[in-house]
Nucleic acid binder design. Structure first.
Length: 771
DNA sequence: AGTGCTGGACTTTTT
DNA sequence: GTCCAGCACT
């Protein structure tokens, strides 16, 4: 049983800890995988070992991840290591796996065969309706607050079903039970489940039907979980149910990288694994293959201050490398200048490619100032995160049509598209229809059908007449019903992409979009095309399997992070949360200030503060060779300027890992030592600041004098002229149209593309044309 | 029915 | 400073 593992061709040798993890195949195994310790490599090698050395059938293995990206990577690596055999392994996110299971056994839980998955936005819509029905003031108790509370309730397997409070409660608590119950009821009525339901209902299925559970236990003999530190209580229950008998559960994670506590993740799952499974073997992967010794040492020092963690010794053979550079800026503008200058310096002086540089921040709002700076300097960048593809309005609209076709009970989708594009079904009609639907306990679409064709309604529903008082309204409803019926026929026969195309054409959506001519409409059209291509891709991947419903699942479960194009050679900006799992040669961490990082709202309990500290650790350990951390002594928060102190995390950095070296900061064409920040007693000392005027010299383009001249009159714009916009920076005028108040310009901005601007509102500043 | 205005909020967001 | 939702206005 202890035959040595022959290495798959081209795979580097395993270190002793990695080897131990790979070869421990029977019984529970916990792998603490420090940052950059070759975790994915170990996971894939372990699965390859199971198949090649232990003769385990691929069908007996399931690997669970949190993100589609992680699942995709694992699938790829396994295909390389195992070839066609890899296809038999069930590699999936938790939520996708549960969806598949629930689709198989939906009838046992009373779910419709074609239940739809509601995302956060749908959830919000539904909650808003629920609050309205319950007459709860949504301004005092916003639905977002209910959403996260309800999510917690639904993710806790111990939670008793919400029942009326025994003791008086206050604030949101007094409504929570009622709202949660009504919300769940509304989900069921819509034939929908939310993300939490996917896990919860699978647990319910297994607990209520032991025979069903038994079949999964029989089949899935080897269970592997990635990023185990991010599992919540329900996921733990799910895993425990599946593995309790054979106990071949291998979990891999890093407690120090648990940063989703606020979403219900429980570090306790990884910290107490060995207590749950006393026979568990525990292995720590301590060798880091990513970062320099300095970076690893400093990051470890920060996270070592946490009390609730597994102590571990990380090491690297990579040598000390460069010191960490600290920079104290006067304000966020200067911080941005520091980053811009630093990026340019890395590239010009050291030949670092833009794609190897990243800027991290705690909050999304921080990105704007950095973006402005980079744009002005002409440095290309991309922001990761932001609006996701499947969250875009037009994409959601189109998907809502298809969801409604697949599941006619889906009121949320119906309300979304019934008057999109406008087809004369207004608020008044809709109000009467929803009232009627509620009274008759019918799905909204049924109400619409009754109103369109009153003979369908029961005789006693005389009040339905009120809903269709206007002949016009009835006509519009009839048209709409006709449209849906027509499209409905397609769903059975046509492929996903064909259905999407048909919906776009026949609903009038394309037509209405064609009437708009601005750049936004253009990008909407592109996004819709993109969605159709996504459907086509999906059809190809699942050769033959072209069910629209399957594509809807795919769309709901794939966050579709705007795929980072490695080839594009641009600087990457993102939140610290988004940085997990990535690595860059050079990392800037901006906004290292008390109140921002750690965030004001996460400083009050030890658990919160420890999570912020882990976040700091995650950010730092993304850097391979260079790490630059900056803070601003004053910063605009909301509308106000506030002064702030350096982050306490900076004080945790060992002095010997930091540099006092000057930061090259380009000023007025010459490279000068602008500033240096030192830590005395762990706290930075103040230094004289560069004045705002001097800082502005760092920008390449200077505004032209605004005195007289044709350039400054409102209609003196010419093609080829350079103008500055407060947000998009400097751009070149491509087209001039209209005059006076309606004077419009098409301006091409290097960082933002062509924008159409109304001169009256754009607040443009003319910039001297380049000679 | 569709546009425009005001008020409030503003941490992170794998699925 | 900016974004969005909800409401008022036309």
């Amino acid at each position: 049983m202890t035959s040595p593992t022959p290495q798959t061709k081209s795979a580097p040798p395993l270190n002793p800890q990695q080897r131990a993890a790979v070869e421990h195949t029977e019984g529970p195994l916990l792998v603490f995988a420090g940052a950059g310790s070759g975790k994915t490599f170990v996971i894939t090698q372990r699965i390859a070992h199971l198949v090649h050395q232990r003769g385990v059938a691929p069908q007996q293995i399931i690997a669970l991840t949190f993100t589609n990206k992680a699942a995709g990577e694992m699938r790829e690596r396994l295909a390389a290591a195992l070839g066609p055999l890899a296809r038999g392994i069930w590699i999936s996110t938790f939520h996708a796996a549960c969806t598949r299971i629930l689709r198989r056994h939906h009838e046992l839980l009373g779910l419709p065969q074609r239940f739809v998955i509601y995302d956060a936005a749908d959830q919000k819509h539904l909650l808003k309706q629920v609050l309205r029905d319950l007459k709860i003031d949504a301004t005092r108790f916003p639905e977002a607050a209910f959403a996260s509370r309800i999510s917690r309730l639904k993710s806790d397997p111990q939670a008793p079903p919400p029942e009326p409070a025994a003791k008086p409660r206050f604030g949101i608590e007094q409504h929570l039970a009622a709202v949660a119950a009504a919300y769940d009821e509304a989900l069921r009525a819509n034939g929908a489940v939310d993300f939490d339901d996917l896990l919860r209902l699978t647990v319910e299925l297994w607990e209520s039907y032991p025979a069903v559970l038994e079949t999964y236990r029989e089949t899935l003999r080897y269970v592997l979980v990635d990023e185990y530190q991010d599992t919540n209580a329900m996921q733990w229950r799910l895993l425990d149910l599946l593995c309790r008998t054979h106990q071949n559960l291998c979990v891999v994670g890093d407690d120090d990288q648990s940063i989703y506590r606020w979403r219900g993740a429980d570090v306790g799952n990884i910290l107490e694994f060995a207590r749950h499974y006393p026979k568990a073997r525990v292995i720590t992967l301590g060798e880091n293959y990513r970062s320099s010794e300095t970076i690893l040492h400093a990051a470890s020092a920060v996270v070592a201050r946490n009390r609730r963690r597994q102590p571990k010794e990380l090491f690297t053979g990579r040598g000390p490398g460069e010191k960490i550079i600290l920079f104290e800026a006067y304000d966020e503008e200067e911080e941005a200048s520091f980053i811009t200058a630093g990026v340019r310096h890395r590239r010009e002086a050291e030949g670092t490619d833009y794609r190897d540089i990243a800027v991290f921040f705690r909050t999304n709002a921080q990105s704007r100032v950095v973006e402005d700076g980079l744009r002005r300097a002409g440095i290309p960048y991309q922001v990761v995160g932001g609006l996701k593809f499947y969250d875009r309005k037009e994409v959601k609209d189109l998907l809502a049509y298809v969801r409604l076709l697949v599941n006619p009970r889906d009121d949320v989708s119906l309300l979304r598209i019934i008057n999109v594009p406008p087809r004369g079904i207004g608020a008044a009609t809709l109000q009467r229809l929803t009232d009627y639907a509620k009274r008759a306990r019918l799905p909204l679409l049924e109400a619409v059908r009754h109103a369109a064709h009153p003979h369908l309604a029961r005789a006693e529903d005389a009040d339905l007449g009120a809903a269709v008082a206007g002949k016009a309204a009835r006509g519009h409803l009839q048209q709409f019903v006709l449209l849906l019926d027509e499209l409905g026929k397609m769903v059975a026969e046509a492929s996903a992409s064909e259905t999407l195309t048909a919906v776009l054409r026949r609903s009038g959506y394309l037509e209405s979009l064609a009437k708009e001519e601005d750049a936004q409409a253009e990008s909407r059209r592109e996004n819709l095309n993109e969605l159709i291509s996504a459907a086509q891709d999906f059809e190809q991947e699942n050769d033959g399997e072209v069910d629209v419903a399957a594509f809807l699942d795919h769309a709901a479960l794939v966050a579709h992070q705007d795929v980072m194009s490695d080839a594009s050679g641009v600087v990457t900006l993102m939140t610290l949360h988004a940085s997990k799992g990535l690595e860059f040669d050079t990392v800037f961490m901006a906004g290292m200030e008390e109140g921002l990082f750690p965030h004001e709202r996460s400083r009050h309990t030890t658990a919160e503060l420890e999570e912020e500290r882990r976040l700091c650790y995650v950010g730092m350990t993304r850097a391979k060779n260079r790490l630059l951390m900056s803070w601003a002594t004053t910063r605009r928060v909301g509308g106000q300027r506030r002064s702030s102190l350096p982050s306490q995390f900076l004080a945790d950095l060992p002095q010997e890992d930091l540099t006092e070296a000057a930061v090259p900061h380009r000023l007025g064409g010459q490279t000068a030592a602008l500033d240096r920040a030192t830590l005395a007693d762990g706290m930075p000392r103040r230094k004289p600041r560069a004045s705002r005027e001097r800082r502005e010299l760092a920008y390449e383009v200077e505004p032209a004098a605004q005195s007289g001249g044709e350039a400054s009159t409102s209609d003196g714009y010419r093609r080829g002229m350079r103008v500055r916009h407060a947000i998009f920076g400097v751009g070149v005028v491509r087209e001039v149209s209209g005059s006076g108040d309606t004077l419009k310009l098409s301006v091409e901005f290097p960082g933002a593309g062509v924008k159409k601007l109304m001169v009256k509102y754009a607040g443009l500043e003319v910039v001297e044309p380049r000679r």
